[in-house]
Nucleic acid binder design. Sequence first.
DNA 1: ACCCGTTTCTTGACACGTCATCTACATTGG
DNA 2: CCAATGTAGATGACGTGTCAAGAAACGGGT
Lengths: 164, 164
Amino acid sequence: MAEPRWLDEDEARAWRGYRRMFLLLNARIARELAEECGLSEPDYDVLSMLSDSKGRSERIKDLAARMLWSQSRLSHHITRMQQRGLVTREEVAGDRRGASVVLTKTGLKAIRTAAPSHVESVRRNIIDLLTPEQVTVLGDIAETVVERLATDSTSDRGTGARPG
Amino acid sequence: MAEPRWLDEDEARAWRGYRRMFLLLNARIARELAEECGLSEPDYDVLSMLSDSKGRSERIKDLAARMLWSQSRLSHHITRMQQRGLVTREEVAGDRRGASVVLTKTGLKAIRTAAPSHVESVRRNIIDLLTPEQVTVLGDIAETVVERLATDSTSDRGTGARPG
DNA sequence: ACCCGTTTCTTGACACGTCATCTACATTGG
DNA sequence: CCAATGTAGATGACGTGTCAAGAAACGGGT
């Protein structure tokens, strides 16, 4: 193999910084969420998605697709959340394979309580630290990368589609 | 609690985009690394750090601190990597509590093989998609957030008070 | 109707990370 | 020196995420 194009100084700074930021930021936000609300980030994401769904329920495959989770991951997670009373499973009319997740009263209360505190956490630990321009550029960057990855990729198991 | 300051459109776009980008980017890069080199990202990180250390070995506590990992995490991971022959443990002269991780010949070979392919992966999936300006801004953002999180190790939750 | 491939969801095994806890050693202060 | 406190590392339990495999139902072609 020919000598690869190693990252230059700026690129390495960005890449390492990005990874380090994720590590710390994720840990911090997860910890605050757990301490204040007793929820993990995945819990929060599921509840948040569900609370925006019509009827506060959604088919598992649709929810998984919307969240970019594998069905397997969602199924496992729902099982755990179900045991804590945050959601329930329900059959789907018209497709006996199907299953929906439904937000329980407890789950709704949990997300309603958690949301304000979570937003504050996000502001305090990243958004409010940045200039409006930086916020916009971060959005641009994410859009570019996501578009590229979402189109030529897979959400569940690897397709093995490899360039080169 | 008063009505929180919800994220505006740009902020929400940045935050959601960032999370989505991480989800997809991490999955993609991890998958390529696993398929091409048989390494996980944490494997790669440990090997990469070790290969830059003097003597290709480092004390566990120092390595953990440098990587921003908990000692426990590193200890667990080293156990798994040890079983695959990538590293070994070694006693430390002068402190009988201590232990070092040492890169094996196999581990060195693994990281040397993996590095070029990993850099290509990073380029293909993010760095080369961005303008130089975006790369710089990403580095700036990460620096800002990391600095804040690294210094402020104990949280000042609840008040919304922020150091100026 | 039946077969066959596909979709939807679940499950089990395993890798990974965190937390609390434990052991062993080191260091400090009486 | 000895007790108390602190530090280094390992470990077990548990929650989480991935993959492969399986079960059940769907749907199209014959």
